[in-house]
Design a protein around this nucleic acid. Structure first.
Lengths: 192, 192
DNA sequence: ATCTTATTGTACACACATGTACAATAAGAT
DNA sequence: ATCTTATTGTACATGTGTGTACAATAAGAT
């Protein structure tokens, strides 16, 4: 019917995700990606449309391994889920040999270099994380594990702050034990 | 004796600091700075040597208003100093109309784009922050306000994580009360 | 064998940025 | 008035990146 693509789109997307993760949005160019992939820019624009579109796709791929997904695990109580979520986060960050932290957080401060739409999409992912945490805390109240007197939104912000802190610190603190120490101590202090 | 400089070096440094703060290291160019200052690149290189050297100077200027300086206030106990430090941080971040977060933290993930020396200098500032926190906790132990059974390094990492979290969250959460809510709740949980 | 069409190759016309070189300038000391 | 010297103006040579345009290619359906 039509000429077949000569490169693997999945491989390209994976490379892009890792480039954005390691180097950050503004240090990734269409040209450098194409050189690494051995394809022409012509092919690139045809397959991905634009660098921003690819960045969006890369974020999507990245979030397929989001520790926050643990929060939706129905077999766990809210508190178990939250603790599990942070445990997985610490393990994931410590396991990363390149200590890249979190793709989403790392790129938040590069919003300025992005088209407004892309920057908003990035921020929305963080809002979404806060909302998921808040919903989980609400679930904990229903389960009777968290006092209804607590402010769910405020607690969710504490947890989001903790996640951010661990993500960033993981770039300099490489031991899973030390990272989990931060999470465990802070979570316990917050009553989780 | 010799021809006088036709622009204000302090003004230029201040502009540079704000550019690095808002846009991040890799989005700031010698050219754009010069255009904003109305000077030639020739003058720029003469006065500052290089963009990296200017970045170092800008970090120095930025850190003159570092909330962590509260930790060295001799009139406060270790715990008072730590709480004051976070109070000041929240106030500072909320007061920033542009919600830029922290210059140092924001640029950590752009390390890849910097010369190795600059990246190390940046990371050293974070290490230094952790060490200052740890020293303050040690002081708290001497003062009898913190149990000697606590792991100072681990607690310092918790606080550094909290500071990072607040810095980052402040880009999306603009209310001082909400930011201080995170700090206060987490600090209390940690025993501060 | 021919046709359709997504994909690929090549080229153009820009824009932005870098670092250096060298001559022109001007402030103030002699 | 002249001299010294940091500063400034202008130019060069180069590198990197962007987005588009158009022709060449090739896989598979007819």
């Amino acid at each position: 019917m039509t000429r077949a693509r000569q490169f693997d789109r999945e491989v390209a997307l994976d490379l892009a995700m890792n480039e954005f993760w390691q180097k950050g949005y503004s240090a990734v160019s269409v040209k450098s990606l194409c050189e690494q992939l051995g394809i022409t820019r012509s092919s690139f624009y045809h397959s991905f449309g634009s660098l921003d579109a690819l960045f969006e796709e890369a974020m999507g791929l990245y979030l397929r391994y989001n520790p926050m997904l643990e929060l939706e695990n129905p077999k766990l109580t809210a508190i178990q889920a939250i603790r599990r979520c942070f445990k997985v986060l610490c393990k994931l960050r410590a396991k990363d040999k390149e200590h890249r932290g979190c793709l989403i957080m790392n790129n938040l401060n590069e919003s300025y270099a992005m088209p407004a739409k892309t920057a908003k999409s990035l921020q929305a992912k963080i809002d979404n994380s806060i909302n998921t945490l808040e919903a989980t805390i609400e679930r904990g109240k229903v389960e009777g594990l968290i006092s209804p007197a607590q402010n769910s939104r405020a607690l969710a912000l504490c947890l989001q702050s903790l996640a951010t802190g661990i993500n960033t610190l993981s770039m300099q603190v490489h031991s899973e034990e030390e990272l989990w120490g931060i999470a465990d101590t802070t979570l316990s202090g917050l009553g989780f």
